[in-house]
Each structure stands twice: as C-alpha cells, then as structure tokens.
Write a protein that binds this DNA or RNA. Structure first.
Lengths: 362, 362
DNA sequence: CTGAAAGCGCTAACAC
DNA sequence: GTGTTAGCGCTTTCAG
C-alpha cells in the first residue's frame, strides 16, 4: 500500500540501510555522503515516504504509547469533573514527551496480563486499580511498567502508587467546620459507592477527626443519597441537628447545593456545604463550593513521569506517593453565626508529595 | 522477552503454523486434530502466551485502533463540557466494537498525511478539522479513512462530515426569545473565537433569523467578552436595551449567569439567558440554563460507524451529515412579562440527521 | 491434517 | 561510506 524504505532506496539508487540511516539515523552512526543524503531525502520527499511505525515497533519493541486503563471511560461526562482533570494531566505529560495516549476502557480482570502485554504500549497508568489480589500479582509480573493512579495503596504494594491522602483531606474539612463553629456535620455518601476505597477512606478520616475534636459523630450522621441528592428535601424537613454537610465527592456536593436552593435553604446562611475534589466545577456552582483539593493534575503528570523513568532506566522498586490535600474555601461555608464570608485562600498543609516512608516523622 | 508462537510450538511439539491456526485461526481453515489442538492450547496456557498485536498488525495491516485528532486535548477540563460528551460518544462506539482509541493532540498541518498514515490506526476522526485547503486535500489522499466531526462542511467536501446545523440552532433561539416577547437580544461572542466556524455560523443564523422576524440587530448587539464574562457588570450598568442574552457557547453562558448573580441581576426575571450546547453542565447552573442541543453523542457515534463501514466495505463517497439542533428550555429564560416559567420539554425540529442533499425539500 | 517458507517494513550488527 | 544480512512475531499460501 504505502511507500516503503525499499521504494525510496530504489528511487535514490541506494540501499535500504542508507535510507534508514539518513531518514531515521540516531545521529552518530550516520556516516553518509552529503550527496547521497540529499538524493535520499529528495526521493523520500518526492515519494511522500512516511515511515511505518508498526514495523519499527516490531523491530524495536517500543511504541512510544502509554495506555490509560480507565474503567468508566465512555461516561466521563456523567461523572465528576475530577476525572477529566486527571485525563488532562496524563495527556499533557504524555504529549509533552511525544508519547501517544491510548485508552483501555475495560480490561478483563482474568486476562490483565494479556491486555497490557500485547506489545502495543510501553507502559500503563491504571486509574482506580481494583484491589483483587490476583489482578495485582498479575500486574506486577506484567511485561510493561504499570503505575496505579488514584488508588489507595495496599500495605504491601507490588506496584507504584500515586494517590492522595483522602483521610487527611477529610480531616481538613472537620477542622474547617470546627473553626467556623459547626458542631454537627452530616457525611453524605453516594448509593452504590459504599465500598469505593476513596469514599471509605474519607469517611474514616472524617470519623477520626471528629473523635479527636470531640465532636459527636455516629452512624446517624452518615446518609446514603443518590447522586442527585434527591433525599435532601425530606432530610431537611425532618429538622436535623446538622449545620454542615460534607459530601464525599464534587458531584453530590453540587447536587446538595441545588437541592438546598430548591428547598429554599440558604447556603451558607442556613447550611454550610463542603465537597471533595476541588475542580473548575466548584467555581460554577452558586454559591461556589468549598472543597478539598487533591493536586490531581500534578499527580497524573507524576504517574506519567514515573513510567518514563522506568522505561529509560529499567524497572524501579514499587513506591507509594501520597499527595497531601488542601482545602479551597469558597462561598458554600460560613460561620454558624450566619455571617456570610468572602472568599479566602486555599489552606496548605504541606508542599509536594510525601513518600510513604517519610510519613509519621515529626 | 515475551512468549511467542514459536515457544508454544516447541512446547507442544508442533509447527508454528499449527499454533497460529488453533489460537487465532479464522474458523474455516482450522483443520487441526482435536488432540493436537488441546496440546497446543494447554501449552499456550501453561506458558501464558499472549499474542503480539504489533507483529500481527504488521502482517495484516490492521490495528483495530481509531485515532481521534483533538487539537486541544490536555485542557479538556477548561473547555465546555460539550467536548467531553463528544469524547464519550466516540469512545462508547469504538469500545462497543472492540476498537481501541488513541488520541492525537496535535498534528502538524504540514505533515497531516504522515501522522495518520504511519500504520498505527485504521481510521481517524478529526474533531474541528481546520479549513486550510492543503490540509483537506492531504487528508483526502490519506491512506486511512478520515471523518470530520463537529466541523462546518465546505461547499465541495473531499471528506465525510458529521456536524450540526449551527445556523438552525441559532434560529431556534431567536424563535424562543421572540415567542417570549423579547425584542432585543445581545449576542455574546468570546474573545479569540471570532473566526471559529461554529461561532460565526451561529452568529449568521442569529442575524438572519432576527431579520426574518423583523427584530433589530446591529453590530451593537454583538459583544466580545472573555470566557468569564467579566465585562458583564459594566455592560449591565450601561443600561442596555436588551432583555435577553445569547452566548455562543455553554461556558460563556454559564459565566454570564454567574456574573448576573453577582451583579444582583435576576435571571430570568431581569434578563433571559440562552447558551449553545446543552450538556449536563446546563443542569447544574442556577437557574438551569436554556440551551441549544446538538445530538453530539449520536453524532460522535455516527462518525465512528462511518469509519467502520468504510473499513469493512472499502472507501465511500464523501458525504455531509448535518444534524438538526433542538432547544432545551430550562429556567434561564422567561417571558418579558417577568413571570418565572417552569421547565419544559425540548423542542424538536425534526428527527435524525439530514443528508445535505435532502435539505431544502419541503 | 500439518509444516515449510515467504514475507509485512524496519533496524542494527557486521562486513566490505 | 555503503551494502548485506538476519531477524522482530505473525499470517498465509502452498505442498505434502
């Protein structure tokens, strides 16, 4: 079909090797006469030669392509914006380094090895890696390096993980509420997400922080609402003791805001609301949503960089990078004194990621 | 590195051919004894054989991969949600057919042919194809089929286009405003998007529809605002004659809503607002945003299907599919009598896409 | 039923 | 400086 090296070689009256060297030669071993070189380039140009990457990949077993395993791709628009940011981060870093991105929407957990080892990708980023033992061991033996992004790391990691400190993030929320005078806060989970590791980690952090702050927090302070928070009105009508709501993610928090508005509940006057995952979406709600920020763009880029590194230097020890969260305070939270606050700066807990080993040091 | 057919063949004591036939054989020519077959399968399983797709692709020149050319990938999160929907549509259709999606963030307009003809993809969808003559002719000669998605088709198309009727969409907006009693409407463009074909087509449709409705519409009714609509307050303060605003896209419309709120302008009481591209985002603004809907999910899937078809049946004539738009009426528009409206159903202009040739028929 | 052999287009020693 | 050669792992005639 297409024009090959051979065609160019014939057109230029030289050998295939010469053409390969001139056109794709890696600098040093390109000892070719200026004359033949121009002849070759001219022929290549005239024939509109374009190198066949597949053949090259077969030869070099490098594709300059990274796979992103992203189980719910195809309904990105229905999920929280957080994932779009993640995608942006991965894409930015890959493209900057002239890598291509291919998306794997579903990888059979039976044949994890197969999907990733078929030669089409040099490495993979797995978003929300499942915790099944078998998947993990298979991945660890995969022919290509894999890094888990946005996944709570197990105690004995076989892979490199890049994730955020969900517990710490929830803690920030409690501190924020506490500082504003709130003493009873509702934790809103999402139906069907009960065993999402993120969600449970956030709940755990929330619970612990409440304990430490001597705030009451019982099972009654946890509700499971659907993603449209359609239960809000009933809940509010029941006259709950809470002055604040912490929703496990951005989307649900947004829904709470909307429902509150519909019910004539003034946020933050009557009720303060905080979400998890501060994204551009939080700027567009009204009021703008106070939310925990994980540096997802950075995290995503970092995941990509880790791959580049093990591609260049050979495989590395599994490591766990846990990024601290910060809180973006916006208009949806206010002191219980009911005074409306103006926008404040993000609260930093620390800078940069923290290696697991370093945590717990004073 | 990996286990190859050869390894399996040796382990099973048969030829490479036999293994290939058993493991990947296309049904008919698989005349292999039951016994050897099981031996082969057993060996393959024991060795954890996984076929090398790159080698296969080189041989068959098929990759089961479709490229999506998407020039601003990497900042999806900053753009309108519309693009995420488009991505979803493409992804859904590809994955449903066991195709892989690879993203090309930038394709040098000089070497369009090269990027698409390097053997890594069987076809490509080009989102917002530029109109440069040279790019178009190059694409038309590309080794793989290309369809332009979300691009205004030229009069003499060399490629297949799938796009929406931007002009018709703008027309719906005028009709809607008119029916509600509005007589002066502001058209909000976005700085830097002056020559985006979409934007100009919408403006054109808007202008024409105003003319036909005998509504005044001059250059003074067009403004260029930044995507945060930061000019809103000044504009409002100047006491404009408009009772409605039509923003060229979703994002800007959302910004207008926010700015209006900040300025104490009640939407839709004081001002009605309409956007272009009805997406889940429009449900989350307050009030929810009335917006023109293009059936982007369908359009994206259609683009993918067109590729499958020309991959299966050989190349097809260039065609232009123009999908009609509809209007999703939500809470941001109301009659000038200032009565707040409840939500209504989308207004359908017609069903399904319309082939260009069919348009203009009674 | 089974296997030998010829490539797909390219790279990389290694000779001349 | 330049060409010969041997594959990368797979599919696919074509003989047996």
């Amino acid at each position: 079909m297409g024009v090959t090296l051979k065609d160019v070689a014939e057109a230029a009256g030289v050998s295939i090797t010469a053409v390969s060297k001139v056109l794709h030669g890696s600098g040093k071993s390109v000892r070719i006469a200026k004359e033949t070189e121009t002849a070759i380039r001219e022929a290549a140009h005239r024939l509109q030669y374009v190198p066949n990457s597949v053949a090259r990949s077969l030869r070099t077993s490098r594709t300059r392509t990274i796979g992103l395993v992203f189980e719910n791709f195809g309904s990105l628009s229905e999920g929280p914006m957080y994932y779009v940011l993640m995608l942006d981060g991965v894409a930015q870093e890959l493209f900057r380094n002239h890598y291509r991105l291919t998306i794997l929407a579903e990888v059979s957990h039976k044949h994890v090895g197969g999907a990733l080892s078929d030669g089409r990708m040099d490495g993979a980023i797995w978003c929300k890696l499942p915790m099944e033992e078998e998947v993990l061991t298979q991945l660890a033996q995969s022919r290509i390096p894999v890094v888990a992004l946005n996944t709570e790391a197990p105690t004995n990691p076989l892979l490199t993980y890049v994730s955020c400190d969900n517990e710490g993030g929830a803690r920030l929320v409690v501190e924020h509420f506490y500082a504003l005078g709130h003493r009873r806060v509702l934790y809103v989970m999402e139906t069907g997400e009960d065993d999402t590791p993120d969600a449970t980690a956030r709940l755990r952090g929330f619970r612990r922080a409440c304990q430490e702050a001597c705030l009451p927090f019982t099972e009654d302070d946890i509700v499971f609402w659907d993603r449209d928070a359609s239960q809000f009105a009933d809940w509010w009508r029941s006259g709950p003791p809470h002055t604040g709501v912490f929703a496990w993610n951005e989307r649900v928090a947004g829904a709470v805001l909307r429902r509150a508005h519909e019910s004539g509940v003034h946020v933050p006057g009557d009720l303060s609301v905080v979400g998890f995952d501060s994204t551009p979406f939080c700027e567009t709600t009204s009021p703008p949503l106070t939310a925990v920020r994980q540096p997802i763009l950075e995290m995503a880029k970092h995941a990509a960089r880790i791959l580049f590194e093990s591609l260049d230097n050979g495989p590395d020890e599994p490591r766990v990078f846990t990024y601290p969260c910060t809180l973006d305070v916006r208009g949806s939270t206010a002191p219980t004194s009911m005074v409306r606050r103006t926008r404040r700066k993000p609260v930093e807990t620390s800078n940069g990621p923290v290696l697991d080993a370093e945590r717990g040091n004073p």
